[in-house]
Design a protein around this nucleic acid. Structure first.
Lengths: 189, 189
DNA sequence: GTCTATAATACGATAGAC
DNA sequence: GTCTATCGTATTATAGAC
């Protein structure tokens, strides 16, 4: 493992912010170096493989922490409470820019190499399995638990991308709490 | 309305393909002109406002035809059949690159101006209302119909972005037909 | 590790001939 | 409408001094 200097981390942080704001292709190495307060040459010392290596680093540190949202509601005693708690956990993570990270990963997906795509898929799978494991506590049938976990996942993801990322919430009168409550009732019956 | 020449349309077509493949920022005017088989100067004759005008044209012609998916299953006689038919309609549209278009719109969302964002929101609203109208045929309660329409929308969108756009289907054993069937049962009960 | 300086190329955009 | 030619700038990346 290569030693990580503070400067290297600072570069990744700035690159991460700019990539998420404007996209990989629209961000220049010069802009990143300027905002960090170093020259391009210094940046290329830290990232010998250039801009692509910067992308790799940013992809790594922007993998969304989905698992945490499941762990946050392990104590629920009914499926209904679990679903409501899960939605609450995701909402908290949305405030930590989880939606922006997902939007960005989707946006840059065509630019990712196979290794990075595999990492993203592994994260997704681990998340789905954790979710299914929790649902399994309340649903005895394996296939039914699988279905509920997938459905919850799709609903939450679709909500995040449509309402938050595409900012539909600013123009639509949508009662999220009521939606989550109805969803929980529907799946817990 | 300005007269549209064949050449202008050819340029939009190539620009559309390249923008969707590589993104707006990563595609150069030169590449587009080359693939169309004209010079940059000729391209700037057709698009006096330059690259940004190209984006506007491509955004316009890549607004997904969501409404069609609802209209395709207007004859369903139960909510269960409607949901299954609706999923089938979306699957057909996925083959017409509707998912790629949605992925691209999400990716370029930060680059869109207010007019273009408003257009996207209007499309979404019209789609949701059409969906709710159909659900209303089977569900008397207005708010419940609203909930079901939103839930279906989020599920389908989440499925499309995760399974198709992020290509999870290539690595996960997922039975879509079984999923849709369980979904229909769950919401039609 | 960070700098100055610079290479080599690509970019968006335009002028003017035909 | 399409071309050639070109402008001014920005791009990724490197060489070599300190």
């Amino acid at each position: 493992m290569v030693e990580r200097t503070n400067r290297r981390d600072a570069i990744i942080e700035v690159a991460s912010r700019l990539f998420l704001e404007r996209g990989y292709a629209a961000t220049s190495v010069r802009q990143i170096a300027e905002e960090v307060g170093v020259t391009e040459a210094a940046l290329y010392y830290h990232f010998k493989a250039g801009k692509r290596e910067l992308l790799e680093a940013v992809v790594q540190c922007n993998m969304p922490d989905l698992i945490g949202a499941v762990e946050a509601c392990q104590r629920a005693e009914t499926l209904h409470d679990f679903i409501v708690g899960f939605a609450r956990g995701l909402a908290a993570r949305a405030r930590e820019h989880m939606n922006d990270k997902m939007r960005w990963l989707i946006a840059e997906f065509p630019n990712l190499n196979e290794e990075e795509r595999a990492l993203l898929r592994a994260k997704y799978l681990a998340f789905r399995d954790a979710l299914r494991g929790q649902v399994r506590r309340f649903v005895s049938d394996e296939r039914e638990a699988q279905f509920i976990a997938s459905a919850l996942l799709f609903v939450m993801f679709g909500y995040g991308q449509l309402m938050i990322t595409l900012d539909m919430q600013s123009v639509i009168d949508f009662d999220t709490d009521d939606f989550v409550e109805r969803l929980a009732q529907r799946f817990a019956c």
